[in-house]
Design a protein around this nucleic acid. Structure first.
Length: 283
DNA sequence: GCCCAGGTGAAGC
DNA sequence: GCTTCACATGGG
């Protein structure tokens, strides 16, 4: 049975917080719903009482691509029970209950976070929107919807010049993205193979790319690879850790990194997302 | 104008 | 080892 719509039954899922939390950059609010692109499909999502209502352009027989992206089968209670039992984290969990991690497509996630360095989230969204509009494949959308575009493939980006990429306002990040796209297009880097390796190896593999350091690698490991123990340390997390866990004395960069890597356990990536969202939206 | 942004890499002590 | 700086661009 194919249909253009479905209901994904799920509870404890804050769709708005999840889609707007800075882990993915392509979701647009449309009233009570959200419009976006997953792979080569346009999608509209809306939180309803029984779960998440989804609508696509063409009829769909198997919705696994969407439930996998949304990670709607994850038992959030079990994830949160694996968190360390400390007051700051419990406070963030209480405030942001229902916040989830998505499972994104590896190339789009890698490229997106390569464009994220020292940019505000609103600006990252703008750069990526421009990149997709100018260089991504146009997708079919329902009547009345504005045009939608796929994220440009490695081959599409590899065929561009640095000047064309800089025209998307990505500045000094342009040569790094171009080099990565060319490596993928030439077969010198597989944007998916790292997911099958142990975390440390996968992280090292990603960090071979110029412009990918520890933080961006951790974002890709977490948001596209399902490495839930990955804990990206960015400026917001540094503020959160400093204020919540070291309020008396200033903690060094190294101390914060050490704490981040050891305190939060196997579901540290979820904990990171709660602390990140809490610090960014609650104060 | 000024400071900062989901950083990284290279150069300087 | 650790600290400082350049790198584009735009928001607040």
């Amino acid at each position: 049975m194919s249909a253009r719509e479905t209901l994904i039954p799920v509870c404890d899922y804050d769709l708005a917080a999840t889609l707007d939390s800075g882990q993915a950059f392509r979701w647009q609010r449309r009233g009570k719903a959200w419009a976006g692109v997953i792979g080569r499909r346009w999608v509209r999502l809306e939180a309803v009482h029984a779960g998440i209502r989804a609508e696509t352009t063409e009829p769909v027989a198997d919705w696994h691509w969407l439930t996998d992206y949304l990670q709607s089968d994850v038992d959030l209670t079990a994830v949160i029970q694996a968190f360390p039992d400390d007051p700051p984290l419990q406070q963030a969990v209480t405030a942001c209950r229902g916040l989830r991690l998505l499972r994104q497509e590896p190339w789009e996630c890698l490229a997106s976070f390569m464009l994220s360095s020292t940019k505000q989230i609103v600006q990252i969204r703008q750069i990526i929107a421009t990149l997709c509009e100018q260089h991504g494949t146009t997708l079919a959308v329902p009547g009345g919807e504005p045009p939608a575009f796929a994220f440009p493939t490695p081959a599409q980006i590899a065929g561009l010049s640095e000047v064309q990429l800089r025209a998307c306002k990505m500045g000094f990040r342009a040569p790094n993205l171009l080099a990565a796209a060319r490596m993928v297009a030439e077969g010198a880097f597989d944007p998916e193979r790292w997911r099958t390796r142990p975390l440390a190896e996968a992280r090292a593999e990603l960090m071979q790319l110029r412009g990918v350091g520890g933080k961006i690698a951790d974002c890709v490991l977490l948001f596209a690879g399902g490495f839930n123990e990955a804990f990206p340390v960015d400026v917001w997390i540094k503020k959160a850790l400093q204020e919540l866990y070291f309020p008396r004395r200033r903690a060094s960069e190294k101390r914060l990194q050490q704490f981040a890597a050891t305190h939060f356990g196997p579901q540290g990536g979820y904990a990171q997302q709660y602390l990140f969202h809490y610090r960014r939206t609650m104060k």
